[in-house]
């Protein structure tokens, strides 16, 4: 109660407009960032792009990491990283990722997967056709 009285006393109309406007913009920004679903998951090894998988179809891919093999699993529009030989399993414990920009990383394996949004990759099908997936599947 006291807090709101102080707030009213401390602010002028200009302050209140700024507060309302910035709060609205922030809520919009946070909501927009949270709403974007991805279409692809890209796989990187040692910061080099290695392969991509479409999120639309369920699949899994075995990737050679520095500590042994790592599985990237895609199911129901989400992706996850399954490690077997990583000391802390951080990438696996990240769980399923699905929003554009989200990542799961296994640092000791040198493997990073990231979800890509709508506009990101016109070349995805081309890369997919000569990527590793034919061998690994």
């Amino acid at each position: 109660m006291n807090f709101f009285r102080l707030l009213r006393k401390a602010t002028q109309p200009g302050d209140r407009w700024l507060m309302a406007l910035s709060a609205l913009l922030l809520i919009g920004y946070a909501g927009f960032g949270a709403g974007q679903r991805g279409t692809l998951v890209t796989i990187h090894r040692d910061n080099q792009p290695l392969n991509r998988l479409a999120l639309a179809e369920d699949s899994s891919l075995l990737v050679a990491g520095r500590l042994g093999s790592v599985t990237v699993e895609v199911k129901g529009g989400r992706a996850r990283l399954l490690e077997y030989d990583s000391p802390r399993m951080i990438g696996t414990r990240t769980g399923w990722i699905e929003k554009a920009g989200e990542i799961a990383v296994c640092v000791p394996c040198g493997i990073l997967i990231q979800i890509q949004g709508e506009e990101a990759n016109p070349t995805s099908s081309k890369l997919n056709s000569h990527g590793l997936d034919g061998i690994a599947r």
Partner: peptide, 17 residues
């Protein structure tokens, strides 16, 4: 430069962001 007067609270939020 803003067309309206802003007090410490408004400036603080802008600066903080």
């Amino acid at each position: 430069l803003l067309p309206f007067r802003v007090g410490p609270v408004g400036v603080s939020i802008l600066a903080s962001l």
